[in-house]
Every structure is written in C-alpha cells, then in structure tokens.
Design a protein around this nucleic acid. Structure first.
Lengths: 340, 340
DNA sequence: GACTGGCACTCACTACGCGGGAGTGCCAGT
DNA sequence: ACTGGCACTCCCGCGTAGTGAGTGCCAGTC
C-alpha cells in the first residue's frame, strides 16, 4: 500500500516527538502536539499501516509507537528538511576554530566543537596523508650515518622518520639528495609517489645510490604504505547522557568499538566528496554499533577531500540538526585548510 | 584502640574478598575462605571495632561489610605486599612494546597495554618537552620569508612550527642561524632555554637580528611556554564493565573528566621520581573523580622523569596487582627510552 | 469511501504484603 | 579472650491487585 501524504506526516510527527521526548508516542498526544486535522482514531489507523510497512513498532501492546530504523531512514531521506544553523551556532563555530595555532590544534578544536554542538560523540580524521600532496621534503643530518626525513604536506601535516644509512655521508651529498627528492616529489599526491621513489633510486649515480636506497625504503614503508591514519575523538561522555535508556544498558561494546581506530577509520574515513552519509542502526556493518547512528562527511580545501569527520549517537538523534552541524563545521574547516 | 594483628588480618581479608566478589562480605564467609583460626563471632567483634575506627562500613544493617576509603588506604599502605608479575605478564609487556616504530607508537602501545593488563582506564603522558633536553634544531626554508623550525628532543619527540619572517632571507643566513641556535641550545633542557634564546637575539649582528627575533618569539611561545603536554588514553570501556555497580550508576561525570586533558595532566603528570602514588576515592581533588582510585607513577630514561603514566578505576580495584603492573610497564618504557 | 466516537481489551508500571535468608549484636558460658 | 546460641533487622524476590495509557475494532456519519 502506498503511503499517502498524511501518513508520512504522521511518521514525521512520530519521529520528531520520539526524538524530543524519548518516549513512545501515542495517537492522542500526536494530534494534540501537531496540528494534524484529524481524530486520534484516524491516526491510529494510519499508524497500523505504518507498522505493517515496518516504519514504526510498538515496544509492547498498548504502548505508543517508536520509529524503526527503516522509519528513521525514510525520515532522513524524504521527510526532513535541513535545519539551517542559528546565528549563534555559526558564531560559536567561528569563535571556536579561530586562533588554532597548528594542524593538531585545528583537529582538536574541531572535534570538541562538534561534540559540544551536537551533544554526541564526535570523530575527526586527521587530514589523510595519502590523499594530500607534498609541499616539501627536508633531510636533517643527525649524525654521519643518520638522517631525519621530514615531510610537510599541503594540509600542514608534518611527518618525520629516522633513517639509518649504510655508511657515512657528506654534507654535500645530503644537499644533493634533498634537491633530487624535492624536484621529483613536490606537488605530487603521496599516493602517487611509489613509482617516483623507485625511479629516484635507479637514476642515482653509484655514490648516492646506497643512501638513496635506504631513504626510499623508509619513504615507501612509513610514509606511503603505512599511511598511518589518525583519529581524534571527543564527547564520549554524551553516550552516558540518556540515562542508559539508549543503548539498552551497556555502553561497553560501544566504548570498545570507539577505541579501535580501524573501525573509526572505516566509518568516518570512507567518505565521498561533498557527500554527507547517514548510517542508521542496523545499516551499520560493525556488530557492536548497531543501535547507533552515524553522520559522516568529508572535508578538505575546496572540493578535495582529505579526511572525514562526523558524529555518532543513538538512533534516536536529531538527524536534521546533526547533519546541518556536521556539514557546516566540515565546510568551515575546509576553508581554513584552503587558506593556509 | 590499637588494631592488633588479627584485626588487620580481617581487614585484609575483607578487602581482598570484596575486590574479588564485589559483594559485601560477612563474618561466616570470611572464616571459611581465609583460614583465620577463630569463630565467626570473634570476627564479628573485630569487625565492629574496625567499623568504629572507620575502616569498613555496612551498606545497611544486616548486610556484610565493605571497606571504606580509609580501609583501602590502610590496606595499600600496610597490608598489601606487592604482587610480583607472572612470567606471562612480563612476556606480554615485552611482546607488546617491542617493535614500536616511533615515539607515538610507543606511547600508543603502552597505554593500550596498561589498559589490557589492568582492565582499567589507562593514561600515559607523552614525554614532557619541558623536562627533556634538546638533541637538534633544524630550520627548513619553506619560502623566502617562511621557515619551518623542527626540534628533536632526546626522547625522540619531534615538534615543528612555521615562522613568518619580517623579510626575505638568504640561504647562507639560514645556515648561520641554524648553526648558532644549535650551538647554544643542544643538550640543554627545554625548561632552561628561555634566557639562552634571549641571548641569541642580543648577540646577533644587524643582518640576522630581525629573523632571529621572529624565531625567538616562536620558540619561546610555542616550544617553551606553551609546552603543550599531551596525553594518551585507553580502556574507557572498562569503566562500563562492573555492570554499573561501581560508580553508582552514572559514568557521565567520569567520562567528562577524562576528556579534560588538564585534569589528566594534574593527576598523572605530577609525579615524583620513582614514586608510585595511589589516590583513593575521596582523596581525589577532582570532585567528579571521587569514587575512583588512581595509581600513577613517573617514567623516563634511567632515573630522570619525563612523564607520568597510570591507571584509573573503581576504588574497589586490585591495588597490589595494578601497582605492580604500572611499575613494571613504566620501568620497561623507561628502559626503551634510555636505549634509543 | 474516508473519517469519527465509543468501547472492550491489553499490558507495563507501581504499590503492597509476605516469607526467606543472610548477617548482625549481644550475652552467657567456657 | 574466645565461642555458641539466639533474637532481631532488613534486603530481596515474588505474587497480587489496581491504575492508566494506549490500542484495535466496529458501527455510525458525512
């Protein structure tokens, strides 16, 4: 049976009320709070249909209705209009992010800001190395047989590694190595560098070859393959807010999942450009995170995506509000990255 | 009234049983499980005394006894012998920490290891910059008016900052600046550098003075004053283990406190050399963390302390075990730092 | 055919009462 | 100084009853 206009309206009302009150919502309360222009009995009939279609359910006979995951999904896809941020929120974002001194600080502030605005758990992925391009490489002699490689990415992220050389090296040779590496790699995306690094070794003369080989090993291993992705997390305390009503009692598995960076990367790192993705309850692949919903989006300078960010909370969350907030913050951070 | 030998023994038994079972312990169960060589009635008399003295209490009449904070304190100070680690645990520590690729990785692994071994929340402070000494400074020209300052500390920690110069600078001048800075600062503890940095500016000739001044501002501000201390955290899921029996219900304030780096630094950063400090329940200054206990110790290469680490959990925790574990891990990490 | 009013029914929630049992405090006895 | 015995307390689990919100359905109305 097709859902007519009013039934959708009823579903919207149920979701909104349930999200607000956290209590199953009955037909009488519905007609009172929203000006549906029909009687409770009619709403009950509509509810029966919605329940048949799987959008809502009753916790027990003779209780009000609660949205199912499918109900939330329909709500998010069709029924909710994006809530524009209030002026106060916009100002809060600006005030909070302005004055960040370095990349670490930006990420840190962003994640706390998100947690605070949405009152959910917030996650921000550090600008991904693999998707960023190289601004500069530096080689720093630590001793005659040891170099420190410092890589500066366009996003401002800096990575460094120590390299043990097979033998002593002259200062001039270091300069030459540095020149060659920069010539070849600057401006390239890290993900595209492996063949170039390979070429660098092959093009080197006999004198430079051994140190260049040592360097390339480290470059490939640690900077490219092991593109160690980092994650910042905040607002876990918000999980304990709902007085244990959400998450039927046990926070444990959720907290555990949140400590696995791999999981978080999967959830918040796999983002397509300028798309906000919403994962609701059972749609989630991670077993322990069914029962939670996730709003994630990519961010980066301009239209490039260098990382993901988002929030996680109970399926019973304010989707329109959270989506709007996550997007606004992502855009703002993207702008900051573009400027620097 | 002085507590005789047996009363102390009874207290010890109560603490041990309560920690193990999480249930108030009665006189009968006590004599059965521990071979006190007296009758339950005698134990009851002892218990009455212990209760008068404030070491144990009854949740309600006709329930068993539970240790008070004072009881735990006495237990920790006088009654518990340090539990030596099992061979398996020692091996676990080694296996877990070996193969860490850099400082970040060491800290990360350490905190997870601690959380896993103790089954509590674990906290590790990154080796503090201010207490570490400088191994090397590097200046990297990014453009003609921009330098990147990279500082490498003895502990392996690396910090970098961008500096905008008042005007264009020559490559030779950069070399000269680098030489002077390193000459003056290498080997010094960061905390001792401010006057030296000041001197560097004053000793500079007219050509080098402006860039050196810009550099010194950044050095002082970001590397010294703002000795941004970082913290790693793991095992928050363990808080939710006790089935909400610990922490009378609400994890919220605790999770909130744990997200405040300032608080964690206070708790785990203020450590004296080679001392393990135990804070029990109400002894804690942070309001929200009464009801939790903290075991913290310092660590660092040799006898130098460069940071703190420890665990936090319910007052009802295995103190001897946790103390032993924290110490062992701290010593192990200290050894690693000494070697590198 | 769509909506409404009315009514019987279901079932969570709360309060109340009532043993059962673990544990205590105290006292008299050894 | 320790022990056995005994009365007492009070939490806990359980069954019962009452209450009320909410439903499903049906007959009636526009």
């Amino acid at each position: 049976m097709a859902l007519d206009e009013r039934k959708l309206e009823v579903l919207r009302a149920i979701v909104e009320d349930y999200v607000a009150t956290q209590e199953p919502v009955g037909s009488k309360a519905l007609v009172e709070r929203h000006n549906l222009r029909v009687s409770p009995a009619t709403v009950r009939n509509d509810m029966a249909v919605l329940e048949d279609e799987g959008y809502i359910r009753q916790p027990h006979t003779s209780a009000g209705r609660v949205p199912t995951d499918a109900g939330y999904r329909l709500f998010v896809d069709k029924l909710s209009r994006i809530k524009p941020l209030s002026q106060a929120e916009r100002r809060a974002i600006e005030r909070f992010l302005i004055g960040a001194v370095d990349l670490d600080d930006v990420v840190h502030r962003t994640v706390r800001l998100l947690a605070q605005l949405t009152r959910q758990v917030a996650v921000v992925q550090y600008p991904s190395l693999s998707r960023a391009s190289v601004r500069h490489f530096e080689l720093v002699p630590i001793s005659t047989t040891r170099l420190m490689v410092v890589m500066i990415a366009e996003t401002g992220r800096v990575e460094q590694r120590l390299v043990d050389l097979p033998g002593p090296i002259l200062a001039d040779d270091v300069t030459e190595l540095r020149r060659r590496i920069n010539e070849k790699l600057v401006g390239k995306r890290l993900v595209d560098t492996p063949p170039l690094v390979q070429a660098l070794v092959e093009e080197s003369g006999p004198a430079l070859r051994p140190p260049m080989a040592a360097l390339s090993t480290v470059l490939l291993e640690t900077l490219v393959e092991r593109t160690e992705e980092r994650i910042a997390l905040a607002g876990t305390a918000n999980l304990a807010r709902g007085g244990l009503l959400d998450f039927q009692g046990s926070l444990r598995p959720i907290l555990e999942a949140l400590e696995e960076e791999v999981i978080l990367l999967k959830l918040f790192g796999e983002v397509e450009p300028s798309m906000t993705r919403v994962r609701i309850g059972d749609e989630n692949e991670i077993e322990d995170l069914r029962g939670t919903s996730i709003v994630a989006t990519g961010y980066g300078p301009g239209s490039i995506v260098v990382g993901g960010m988002g929030v996680l909370g109970p399926t019973r969350m304010d989707y329109p509000g959270n989506i709007a907030t996550v997007r606004a913050v992502a855009r703002y951070v993207g702008d900051m990255l573009a400027q620097s």
